[in-house]
Design a protein around this nucleic acid. Structure first.
Lengths: 338, 338
DNA sequence: AAATGTTTCGCAATCGTTTGCGGTTACGTT
DNA sequence: AACGTAACCGCAAACGATTGCGAAACATTT
């Protein structure tokens, strides 16, 4: 059968009207038992499946939410998706996933795709290139609620589910300090990204609260496996090299660790390392990597829940910022407290 | 504006008919220049976006393909998705992603969701629990082409994009043999899974071709990080323990590696290890992990391409099996040839 | 001046489903 | 015999966009 079975097919076969079939299928009291039985058995036999497209049009309800993320190929983002998927599935929603590939232009196109497809809400983590949020704000103005997660525009009145980056960074840095590290480097990311800004701020605050002077030469923008290598080499050639590194994410931390090992510098004895994100591969490095667990799955769950809530009842007044708890996962790349 | 702008809104505002607006928007010659301009400027001003749902219904064409995978949270699967996404995007298709979470029941529901949403084709990698494929075959009978990737039903006439598991396993095993290993263990997965069967077959063939006897006690079903630990411990307590391990995937390989290290057994000197899948974390273990690169992204690309082709021109006759090239990525967990 | 052509646009049907309203039976009641 | 009333069911409109066909309005030709 090339074209799917419709209600009309059933109606024609049974010599009744489409409306009767429709009502019979949903057990409407107006329909006699015999008719219902006939319809139901034929529908089952023909494997009738209601056309969700037609329903969407009729009800102006697509039961679909959109997701825009930079790249699926990151443990963190894919675990967020997993959380989103589970919540959406439970609530009878479908998920449309779009990747921006960290490109602003593509993100704009993604937004249009979501809007054309009449998604009822969107979950967005913006690309690194995105500094103008008008495409997203327009979407929201047009009645599509948005919940930002992880990477959210600063200082805008939007719903967001994020971690308390500053606090998490503060805790990570503090742990390094408490285990005896004095010269703590920070491999950071661009300050425009919010998380870059916040994590640096937490790092600085921790230093300050413990009476350790802030050194500009110990803070480097390096947010990938490759960049971390160069940055680490440079850091270690400083007159006063670091004895600990707080990296803005795990890939960066691993890049640093690998480089240190290649330089025969013992981790954590000579240089301790702590990462951010707790991708599951923090388990498999040697030494295993201490990290800040961002709870991606949970973030997905909470973001999706908030979005569904916004779909039910549009925001009244100001939006909400929800924090996901982080916690330090202490493994072998940092020293122990004594 | 709560409800999106429609063609009728524009028509009403301009005191013309909806048909004229429609034609004006697509530059139909029947429409005068002035009308076109008026329509276009108003459409732009109101940020009119065509309703993809209505178009889908009208054209019986949703421009959407469905993807069913066990879990997004695997580097391999998310890289496949990435490949699919890129091809789909290029061709103007949307992607609907569903996770089976390795459950047969949920996979069935996923299929229904895809069918209800009238996807034009599906890309499927079946769950571990799936032994009955009728839900998928029904879908295909109803005119929705399916391309299976990675995990495809055996001995069924379906389209599939897979790697040559047997050959890849053969190569991996052969490399271990050529670097001097004599007692090669295989951490395998269930034989029902096809890839389990094929990889074991390749492993056996390699042994055979090199005159090494097959030992049942060296083949264990263990296909996760945790299971690999126990299995490896048992293997090493054998009277004649292995001097190499070929693992069915990277997580398993890393589990084995970690366990060996905990037992103070040198890798690769005492026991060499080779994995399968080349998740990017094979780079970050110490020693780095030799592995068979499955080229997930490319698999996604090829599977999507094949699917789009099937959507254009339905299969005439028998289906196609397409192999993605694999290659050995030799790193530090195996010895070098001399 | 009549006939033909050209330009520009609207009507209505269609995709599949739902639903208010009205219509047709059959049955019972007076 | 005439009427009321359930019990069942169909008509048609609606969701938004497209498109064949017909129809005005105006211009051109003979």
């Amino acid at each position: 059968m090339s074209s799917p079975i419709t209600i009309k097919d059933i109606a024609k076969a049974l010599n009744i009207s489409a409306s009767t079939v429709s009502r019979a299928l949903k057990d409407h009291p107006d329909i006699s038992r015999e008719t219902k039985e006939a319809v139901n058995t034929l529908a089952a036999k023909l494997r009738y499946k209601p056309n969700a497209v037609a329903l969407s049009l009729k009800n102006s309800k697509t039961n679909t939410i959109g997701v825009i993320i930079p790249e699926v190929v990151h443990y963190f983002f894919s675990s967020v998706i997993s959380g989103i998927e589970d919540v959406a599935y439970e609530a009878g929603y479908n998920v449309m996933v779009c990747q921006s590939n960290e490109k602003y232009a593509r993100e704009v196109i993604n937004v249009q795709a979501l809007e054309s497809n009449r998604v009822e809400g969107a979950l967005v983590s913006v690309s690194k290139e995105t500094h103008d949020f008008s495409h997203l704000l327009n979407l929201e103005e047009n009645g599509v609620p948005i919940v930002f997660f992880d990477r959210a525009p600063e200082e805008l009145d939007v719903d967001r589910v994020i971690i308390d980056d500053r606090k998490a960074a503060y805790n990570a840095t503090t742990h390094l300090i408490e285990t005896g590290c004095k010269r703590i480097a920070h491999l950071s990311t661009h300050q425009t990204l919010g998380i870059g800004f916040e994590r640096l701020a937490g790092y600085r605050k921790a230093l300050e609260d413990h009476g350790i002077p802030y050194r500009e030469d110990l803070v480097v923008v390096a947010d990938s496996f490759e960049l971390a290598g160069d940055a680490t080499r440079n850091l270690m050639h400083l007159p006063s090299p670091p004895d600990a590194i707080f990296a803005v994410n795990d890939m960066t931390a691993v890049g640093a660790m690998k480089t240190l090992q290649r330089m025969s510098i013992a981790v954590p004895q000579k240089v301790a390392i702590i990462g951010f994100s707790a991708g599951f591969f923090s388990d498999i490095t040697t030494p295993t990597l201490s990290s800040v667990d961002q709870h991606g799955y949970e973030m997905g769950v909470e973001a999706a829940k908030l979005l569904l809530q916004r779909i039910e009842i549009p925001v009244e007044g100001k939006h909400k910022t929800q924090f996901i708890d982080t916690h330090l996962v202490l493994r072998e790349s940092t020293k122990r407290k004594n």
